[in-house]
Design a protein around this nucleic acid. Structure first.
Length: 280
RNA sequence: GAAUUGCAACAGAU
């Protein structure tokens, strides 16, 4: 069973969702009874592949069989609920953990905070964040990033900055995700200059930008119609060895098209296809 | 001596 579980996890992580599902069935066919870990792997695999809605059914299958969920199983299920629009249910499970003597961890809180933040329920997210702190849970950069992202996406830039400051005061180091969340917030608020300032701070603080960072900035520059500058970043990105993917191509192509540079845009589109890109 | 079978965060177009 250990071997099958491990293999099933690998299969899901390789993106072979249907094969993963059939492996779960195969476990039963071979006369094993899937354990809490098998279910966790299955749920996690499905959630990552966009089938979070199936969490509910699988969770109740586990319950019916009388399985006792451990912390990680709870965390996986809670994340599945968050990603299928059942954040209230997720929160309820967090409470259930406390009752059952499984103390919620930083991951548990992180999942629910992120779930709330993604549906713009930031005040509740922030309350949970405070609750976790008051319980002495060491919050990490992931949780802070979720909040920066959440506040940023609804335009509460000041609060996003405050979270960022608190993070640094705690002696934590913002990583490329954190910075990207902040940059995206500034871009969406059309504060591109501020975003470029942050881009420099990020580098000063030894955080290396990645392809997502460039995609955010290119998009931001296109939004304020600074197409030439966007194209400079496009080239800089490739000089640094980041291969453009479908999203970065789309960002740049639509930017060029909006600038009326139809010729350049179609040239890029051809290059995209020539490099094996599949237009979506 | 240790050793991971499972858990959370970021970008585009429509």
């Amino acid at each position: 069973l250990t071997l099958l579980n491990t293999y099933m996890d690998c299969v899901f992580k390789a993106g072979e969702t249907e094969k993963g599902r059939s492996l779960f069935e195969e476990i039963k066919a071979r006369g094993f009874i899937p354990d809490v870990r098998s279910y966790s792997i299955l749920i996690h695999g499905l959630v990552k592949a966009g089938f979070a809605r199936e969490t509910y059914e699988l969770f109740y299958m586990m319950k019916e069989q009388g399985f006792v969920l451990d912390t990680r199983a709870y965390n996986t299920v809670i994340d599945g609920f968050c990603k299928s629009g059942k954040v209230n249910k997720a929160y309820q499970l967090l409470e259930e953990m406390k009752v059952k003597g499984q103390e919620p961890t930083v991951v548990t809180y992180g999942s629910v905070i992120d779930g709330l933040a993604k549906i713009d329920r930031l005040d509740e997210a922030y309350m949970l964040f405070e609750e976790a702190k008051s319980k002495g849970i060491e919050l990490n950069v992931v949780v802070y990033s979720s909040l920066v992202d959440g506040f940023g996406k609804v335009g509460r830039i000041d609060e996003a900055y405050l979270i960022m400051e608190e993070l640094m005061q705690k002696g934590l180091t913002p990583n490329v995700y954190t910075w990207n969340c902040l940059l995206d917030a500034l871009v969406k608020a059309e504060e591109i200059n501020e975003a470029l300032v942050c881009f420099n701070s990020m580098k000063d603080l030894n955080c290396t930008p990645n392809a997502v960072t460039y995609s955010i900035l290119i998009n931001g520059l296109c939004r304020v119609r600074k197409f030439n500058k966007a194209f400079v970043f496009w080239q800089e990105m490739q000089k640094l060895g980041f291969k453009p993917n479908t999203i970065t191509y789309t960002t740049m192509i639509s930017g060029l098209a909006k600038a009326g540079q139809i010729f350049e845009a179609s040239g890029l589109f051809e290059r995209f296809k020539a490099n094996g890109g599949m237009p979506d």
